[in-house]
């Protein structure tokens, strides 16, 4: 199902000391299958590593994953680091973003204030993130895929 469009590069990684690898492994597969060029930085990726990779690969989007509950600390100043490195990319974050906080809307607000363009919870399907990417990056896609968008 490679899209009939130019390949777009996205950088993917788990931020901080988090070592949860399954989610991004599957997301990497899903993004590749959808036609993106994926740079997977893996787990325990620093803010600087995200920025360097985004510059080196001219990434159009930076996708940050966090599942161990310390996302807010790990992302403090992240967008400043990206800015300093002249990264001009969409930024998404997803996962278990807050521990013991049930109201996801509040979590979304927190991370939007930190500068993220989109915030996803841990129940998000890869398709949902891909559909958002396609819209945000103005990727031409087929109708049948657009109807799978649920958010």
């Amino acid at each position: 199902m490679v899209l009939d469009t130019m390949s777009r590069t996205v950088v993917l990684g788990v931020i901080g000391s988090d070592a949860h690898v399954v989610g991004i492994t599957i997301l990497e597969q899903a993004l590749s299958a959808a036609g993106f060029d994926v740079v997977n930085l893996g787990v325990q990726t620093s803010q600087e590593e995200f920025a360097e990779a985004a510059v080196a690969h001219s990434a159009e989007a930076v996708l940050v994953s966090s599942l161990y509950g310390h996302a807010e600390q790990d992302c403090q100043g992240f967008h400043e680091v990206l800015e300093e490195a002249d990264v001009d990319a969409m930024t998404y974050i997803g996962g278990n973003l807050a521990v013991g906080q049930d109201d996801f809307e509040q979590t979304r607000e927190t991370f939007e204030e930190l500068g993220f363009d989109r915030v996803f919870d841990s129940e998000t399907d890869p398709e949902e993130a891909i559909a958002a990417l396609e819209r945000d990056l103005h990727v031409t896609t087929s109708e049948s895929e657009q109807v799978t968008v649920t958010s």
Binding site: G23, L27, N96, S122
Partner: peptide
């Protein structure tokens, strides 16, 4: 079954 990526770990 719906599979959520974020909950995969």
């Amino acid at each position: 079954g719906k599979g959520g990526v974020g909950s995969a770990d």
